[in-house]
Design a protein around this nucleic acid. Structure first.
Lengths: 340, 340
DNA sequence: AAAAAGTGTGCAAACGTTCCCAAAAACGTA
DNA sequence: TACGTTTTTGGGAACGTTTGCACACTTTTT
C-alpha cells in the first residue's frame, strides 16, 4: 500500500535508538534490556506500528503463508477443508492463499507457480482431474518447497499425504445399496487419473464381490472433467440407463449432485426409482429429492491434519525423510425415507 | 521460498551487464538497445528467470494483488462473485487473496488489516452481518487504500458500490407469491444492519402494498447471524408458524436453505404446504424438495463490475472523486411443479 | 589491579527489485 | 577538430526488515 505508515526506522529515530535495537526489542530478544523493550513496545503501540510483512519476507526469504490449490471453492467438501486449514494455520500465525484450478491442469500449474514465486512457505494441494504430469511439482519440491497432498494424491511422490478411507467409504456405500436389495449397481466416477477414482472403484468392486455380484465394466462411467460440464453427465446417464441399473454409486461431490440433476432433467420418470449413494459433503443433502445415501468425508479434519503436517515440514530444522499417509474414516449417512 | 533461484543480479553478472540494464531490458524499456534486450531475454528464458514479486512489492510499494472479504466461500453466491473477480483480475495481471469473515466483525477487521499490511492494492468487500462500525475501513480508505463494496454495502461511505436490484428482486418474489394466491406472507431476513436487508424489506412491503395486503411486522423475522447457527432459524420458524403463513419470502442464500431445512426438521408436515420464494444462487435448487422460487443475483457479473471499478481506482493517476453505485438486475426463477 | 565474562547497543550488510542520475559511446554538425 | 546530441549503459540509493559482528560499559573472577 502506498500510504505512509510507521516503520522501525521512525521508531528508532523518535526514541534515539538504532533500528537493530528496535527490531530486537519488538521481537523480544534476550539481549535487550527490559527497560528498552518496554519503551519500544509502548511507543510502537502508540503509533500503531505494524511490521511490514513484505520486507520481512524479503529478508527472511519466507512469507509465513501457505498456498492452497483446490479444484473449486464452490464445493462444500473443499470449502470445509479450507476451513480446517485456516483453523490451524491462523493459530500458528500462518496466512493462507487460496487458488482454484477449476479442474484444469494448465490453471493449476499457473497458480502453483505464481504462489511459489510469491514465496509461500509450503503448499497444500488436491490435484485437478486433468493432472498427470507432476514434473512442475517435483521441481519445486526438489528445490525445497514443502508439499502436502490431500484428497487427490499422486502415487509416486514421496511426501505427506492425507486422504479419506476411500476404499471403505465406497465399500460401505455399495454394500448399503446391495443390502437394500439392489443388484444392478452402476458406478459413476471421475477421471481415471485420480487416486480417489481408483480407490473408490476398488471399494465398489469389493462390495460386489462380497455379495457375489458380477462386476460389469459397462456399468462404470468415467467423467474426465469431474462433472464440470453438464453434457458430460447427461451423456453418462444416457449410456447407463439402457442397462437398467437399480442403484448408482457415485464417486464425488460434484458428480453426485450433477448426476441427480441430469437424471431429473433427462429421465424424470426414473429418477425416483433408482437408489443413489454418493460421496458428497454438501450440507444440503437433506433437501434433495430424490434423496440419497451419502458418504461424508471428514473434510475439516482433513484440512487440519494436512496443515499440521505441512507446518511440521516447514519448521523442521533438517530435511524430513519419513513421510506419512494419513487415512481418515468416512461416514455413511443413510437415506431418509422421503416424506410426502 | 528459501531455495535458490536466479535473480537479476545473476543475469547481470553472467552477461557482464549491470543490474539496472538487465532490469530495464526485462521490462522492455525504450532506453535499452534491441540487441541487449534480446540477449537478456534469451538468457533469462534459459535460466527460467522469475522476477521476485516480494522484492518488487517492497520497492514499488504495491503488490499487484487485491483482497477480497466475503462472509464465507461455501456459499454459491459468494463463490460465483469470486469467480467473476478472478476473471477480471487475472486478465489485468492482478492476483487475488480471499478471506472469510464468517459473519463476524472481529474476524472481518482482523482479515482486512492483515491484507492491508500485506500491501494489497485494493479491497473488495461484502460486509459481515455484524459489522456496524466502519472506522477501521474509513481509516484505511483515507490513507489511500481503494475500496469497492459489493452486495452488502454501507450507506454513508463515499466510494464505488455494486449491488443487485434488491428492491426489485424482493418485489418480484413477493408478487409471485401473491399471484399464486398467497395472502399471509412471512419474511425471513438478515440482520437489520445490512443494506440488503433494508432494501429487500422495502421491496417486500411494496409488493404487499400493490395488492392491498396489510403489512404485519410480526411476520418479519430477523436473523442476526445470517443463519450461521441453525438454532437461530429454528427459533424463527417456530415463532412464525403460529401465524399461519401460506408463503415465505426469504432474503438470502444461507437463510433460504437454512429455513427449508428448519421447516423440514421441525414441522415436516407443513413444509410442503408453504410456498417459498427466496434469494439464492445455489446451483442445486432444482434438487430441493420442497421446491421453491428463487431470486438469482448476477453474482459473476457483480464480481466483474466491482473488480473493474476497483482496478480503475487503483490505476487512476489522480484521486477519484466521482463514485458510482452500479445496480444489477436479478432474475426470478419460478418454482417448477414437483414431479412425483 | 588486571583480565575475563557478561550485558546492552549500534553499524552495516543483505534480501531482489526499481529508478534517478551520471557517464560513456556513438553519431552528427559546424 | 571540436563540440553538441542522442543513445545506451552503469553506479548506487532506496524500499523495511533481520542479524553477524564489533564496541562500550559493568560486573565478576583471579
Amino acid at each position: 500500500m502506498r500510504f505512509e505508515t510507521s516503520t522501525i526506522k521512525d521508531i528508532a529515530k523518535a526514541l534515539g535508538l538504532s533500528t537493530s535495537t528496535v527490531s530486537r526489542a519488538l521481537r523480544d530478544r534476550y539481549e535487550i534490556s527490559e527497560e528498552t523493550k518496554k519503551l519500544v513496545l509502548a511507543y510502537a503501540e502508540k503509533v500503531n506500528y505494524r511490521a511490514n510483512p513484505i520486507a520481512r519476507s524479503l529478508k527472511e526469504r519466507r512469507s509465513y503463508s501457505i498456498g492452497i490449490i483446490v479444484s473449486e471453492i464452490a464445493n462444500n467438501f473443499f470449502s470445509q477443508v479450507i476451513n480446517g486449514i485456516e483453523s490451524i494455520a491462523y493459530a500458528k500465525d500462518y496466512h493462507v492463499i487460496i487458488s482454484q484450478s477449476h479442474e484444469s491442469f494448465a490453471q493449476e500449474k499457473l497458480n502453483v507457480e505464481h504462489l511459489a514465486s510469491r514465496s509461500i512457505d509450503g503448499l497444500l494441494i488436491a490435484l485437478s482431474s486433468e493432472t498427470q504430469d507432476l514434473h512442475y511439482l517435483r521441481d519445486l519440491y526438489s528445490k525445497g518447497l514443502p508439499i502436502v497432498f490431500f484428497d487427490r494424491v499422486p502415487q509416486d511422490f514421496e511426501t505427506h499425504k492425507v486422504i479419506a478411507n476411500n476404499f471403505k467409504g465406497a465399500f460401505d456405500a455399495t454394500e448399503h445399496l446391495i443390502l437394500s436389495g439392489k443388484r444392478t449397481i452402476a458406478h459413476l466416477t471421475n477421471s481415471e487419473n485420480l487416486s480417489i477414482t481408483r480407490e473408490r472403484l476398488k471399494g465398489y468392486q469389493a462390495a460386489l464381490n462380497k455379495y457375489h455380484i458380477g462386476f460389469n465394466p459397462d456399468l462404470v462411467k468415467y467423467c474426465q472433467h469431474g462433472g464440470m460440464h453438464s453434457e458430460e453427465l447427461e451423456q453418462a446417464v444416457k449410456e447407463l440407463l439402457p442397462l437398467k441399473p437399480d442403484g448408482i454409486f457415485i464417486s464425488s461431490d460434484r458428480l453426485t449432485t450433477g448426476c441427480i440433476m441430469a437424471l431429473k432433467k433427462t429421465n424424470p420418470e426414473v429418477a425416483n426409482t433408482i437408489a443413489i449413494a454418493g460421496f458428497t459433503n454438501s450440507n444440503l443433502v437433506e433437501l434433495f429429492s430424490p434423496s440419497l445415501t451419502s458418504v461424508k468425508q471428514p473434510a475439516f479434519e482433513m484440512g487440519q491434519v494436512a496443515t499440521e503436517l505441512l507446518i511440521s515440514m516447514i519448521e523442521a530444522k533438517r530435511p524430513v525423510t519419513e513421510f506419512q499417509t494419513k487415512i481418515l474414516d468416512t461416514e455413511l449417512v443413510k437415506m431418509v425415507k422421503p416424506k410426502l
